[in-house]
Nucleic acid binder design. Structure first.
Length: 482
RNA sequence: UCCUGAGUAGCUCAGCCGGUUAGAGCAUCUGACUGUUAAUCAGAGGGUCGCUGGUUCGAGCCCAGCCUCAGGAGCCA
């Protein structure tokens, strides 16, 4: 018996009239004769032609949607339209039956909500097969990008000590019996008796530890799971998500922007090259979906065109202050169309403002820099006060069409006195972060980094609308199924 | 967490002003057909109308509370 050949290889095969073994899951069985078989190696199915007149009827009945089968047969040029090659089955073995009365995935359109509730089986649909192959490619490309540039992949801890940086609500990690939590004399939880001897939680960011690595290895990146216990119910947030956080010694904010833009273009190009079929499929899917919308809400570009456009154009770079001026003078602001009118300098931009800049004004990815100091984190490098008395920090956010903020980063404050002063102002406990401050005490240097929400990148590249559909098993409030 | 909308067959949905036996398409099953591509044709089975309570002679429909989901907002990546 010949070795199993993956369907992707079979479909690309130049040789016909050869014996092959192919294994996979039945997507459809038409006319008691044509099996559409898929094994996940590609979005495309191989057609298996069954000689039903000379096949045991009991076996035919077991060829149902979702069943796993093994086929030995001859690869031939297809007589029918829609495929170039097909396999004439000589022998079919049922590896795993699939009761059609109970199997939830039918050969028809399913809503994304329904498939989300069946996340354990949704990989078997064309859409999710394509999404997760693209997701893989993007992850691989991220590693390749940094590896090629001499970065060290640094594994920062998943369990960290008390959340000191305020990057959002953290999940507590404890080994206590919750029905009998040890208390101190004053009635507080006695973490000294807990597993780690102190209060711990799941990481909300690997950045601070990443900086420690960068202050010796120069160029590092992290790529791992991140957890936020925020009660966020949106299409862009998850309680467990994957974040990529490069940190580079001796980089300033411009270097940081260059790195982020290069990386995004690199990984998008990689997916376009390696997953052409999947992105073509997802482009079609999105176009079908857009047909449901009224004409004026449809996007001007297809998914493929959007990705290509992103590669062909420089991201628009401007300061927060410049963005505020544009927004103030914008038509929707003057006509009071914004829910939050843009008036003064100093408040954070709302989603609608970011969307206006990216989707209406510039119509391409935008990098906003130099945000007001008091709306950003303590570790961002402080600029000199400008002529208008504005206090800003060397922050940058990359905004993508349809996604919003995909990257948030900054040049870090490397001056110990400035950093400590800022921590005091913001009530960040310096004693808990003594190790972080040590980098500023011993051989401090300018450095910069950013965080990229991996799922938001996958969202953009696949053209999907809900972040829960681009991670295999999404974690969000009231849901930890599977 | 807030705002808006939704929850009826396996799926997608309809169900009028509160009225008698709750419907359709797809899927499934049975049969026919057999080079199909969301195959086609005929027939059949399939329901705790999200949950709890209330109003009423009578509730899928009205009221209250709760749960879940979707979209938007906030927080952010």
């Amino acid at each position: 018996m010949s070795q199993r050949v993956k369907i992707k290889a079979l479909l690309q095969s130049q040789q016909t009239d050869v014996d092959v073994t192919v294994k996979g899951w039945v997507r459809a069985f038409r006319s008691n004769r044509f099996i559409a078989l898929n094994d996940g190696s590609t979005n495309n199915n191989i057609q298996i032609v069954v000689d039903f007149e000379n096949t045991d009827p009991a076996l035919l009945k077991r060829i149902t949607v979702g069943a796993a089968i093994s086929v030995v047969g001859k690869l031939v040029a297809s007589q029918g339209k829609g495929q170039t090659v097909e396999v004439i089955a000589a022998d079919i073995e049922i590896l795993g039956d699939s009761d059609p009365e109970k199997y939830p995935i039918q050969p028809k359109k399913h809503s994304l909500e329904f498939l989300r509730e069946n996340a354990h089986l949704r990989f078997r649909t064309s859409t999710f097969g394509a999404i997760f192959r693209v997701r893989h490619s993007l992850a691989f490309a991220v590693h390749q990008f940094f590896h090629e540039r001499g970065f060290v992949y640094l594994h920062t801890p998943v369990i960290t000590q008390s959340d000191a940086e305020g990057a959002g609500e953290a999940f507590h990690v404890t080994n206590f019996d919750l029905a009998n939590v040890p208390k101190t004399d004053t009635g507080e939880v006695d973490y000294k008796q807990d597993f780690f001897g102190k209060s711990t939680n799941l990481t909300v960011s690997g950045q601070l530890e990443g900086e420690l690595g960068a202050m010796a290895l120069s160029d590092i990146y992290t790529f791992g799971p991140t957890f936020r216990a925020e009660n966020s119910n949106t299409t862009r947030h998850l309680a467990e998500f994957w974040m990529i956080e490069p940190e580079v010694a001796f980089n300033d904010l411009d270097d940081n922007m260059d790195l982020a833009e290069d990386m995004l273009k690199y990984v998008i190009k990689y997916a376009l090259d390696k997953n052409a079929d999947d992105i073509e499929f997802l482009t079609q899917r999105l176009q079908e979906e857009e047909k449901q919308k009224p004409q004026n809400e449809r996007s001007e570009m297809t998914l493929f065109e959007k990705l290509q456009f992103c590669l062909d154009h420089d991201f628009e770079r401007l300061t927060y202050t410049e963005a505020i001026e544009i927004l103030k003078e914008s038509t929707p602001n003057k006509r009071k169309k914004f829910q939050y009118p843009v008036e003064g300098w100093g408040t954070d931009l709302q989603s609608e403002h970011e969307r206006y800049l990216v989707e209406k004004h510039f119509k391409k990815p935008v990098i906003l820099t130099d945000y007001p100091k008091n709306i950003k984190a303590f570790y961002m490098r402080q600029n000199e006060v400008d002529a208008n008395g504005h206090e800003t920090v060397r922050a940058m956010d990359i905004l993508f069409p349809g996604i919003g903020e995909i990257v948030g980063g900054s040049q870090r404050e490397e001056r110990l006195d400035k950093l400590e002063q800022r921590m005091d102002e913001m009530g960040i406990p310096k004693d808990e972060l003594w190790w972080y401050l040590d980098t500023r005490r011993f051989g401090s240097c300018p450095h910069a980094g950013f965080g990229l929400g991996f799922e938001r990148l996958v969202l953009f590249v696949t053209g999907m609308g809900n972040i829960r559909d681009v991670i295999p098993f999404p974690r969000f409030p009231k849901n930890a199924e599977f």
